[in-house]
Nucleic acid binder design. Structure first.
Lengths: 101, 101
DNA sequence: TTGATATTACGATTTTCTTGGTAATATATT
DNA sequence: AATATATTACCAAGAAAATCGTAATATCAA
């Protein structure tokens, strides 16, 4: 993944609502949560929530799957791992390696 | 650090210019680089660069120290480590722990 | 089909970000 | 002081993001 793609994901997570949404989903486990539950938990109005969810989907951080009336949001952990891996490899000078060598 | 603080840092890194700036600084080592060098390397106009640098400073991701005419930008690794640690602890379900137990 | 529930689309407003030119400031050199 | 270099301050315009009310759609249950 290139720097622009990473920046995009970081930007998505760089909003309090969206970071809370993602965090909440992750905490809920691999099955994720319905939009409605997120909405109630985090107390964000319908239409705002929709925008935030949509941009998280757009960035590949969550996926949605319909179950009848309910639309379940499922966190895409891999996407976050990619970002963490990038930050660690591209934006960290390992203290140990430079202290030891 | 709380979720809003983390979101703020993520947002700062969530811009291609700023992510490149930070990455470039990290790659350059613990001493950082002068604004002018960053500017030339990344080909960003003076005034835009100033804005981006200022917001990186504001978020604690870099510090600046004057050396005569030159203003050196020094990356604050710890700040990034905090974010990575947060993401790992709050936004990751460890695959191993759930696969193994 | 009626009524309830879950979610999104539309639309409009406000706020925040981004950009970059030009002028100003600070430092060094002579 | 005059000149060159490095960086920021100021300002204004345009672009993008955030907000959220209301209307619409989709699904289910009876």
């Amino acid at each position: 993944m290139d720097v622009d793609e990473i920046a995009k994901i970081l930007k998505e997570l760089g909003h309090p609502h969206r970071l809370r949404i993602f965090k909440r989903l992750v905490k809920s486990g691999f099955d994720g949560l319905p939009v409605g539950v997120l909405r109630e938990d985090l107390d964000i109005p319908h239409s705002s929530m929709t925008h935030h969810i949509a941009s998280l989907v757009e960035a590949g951080l969550i996926k949605q799957q319909r179950e009848g009336r309910i639309l379940r949001c499922v966190p895409q952990y891999g996407r976050l791992w990619d970002v963490i891996a990038y930050l660690q490899s591209e934006c960290c000078l390992d203290e140990r390696s430079s202290a030891a060598g």
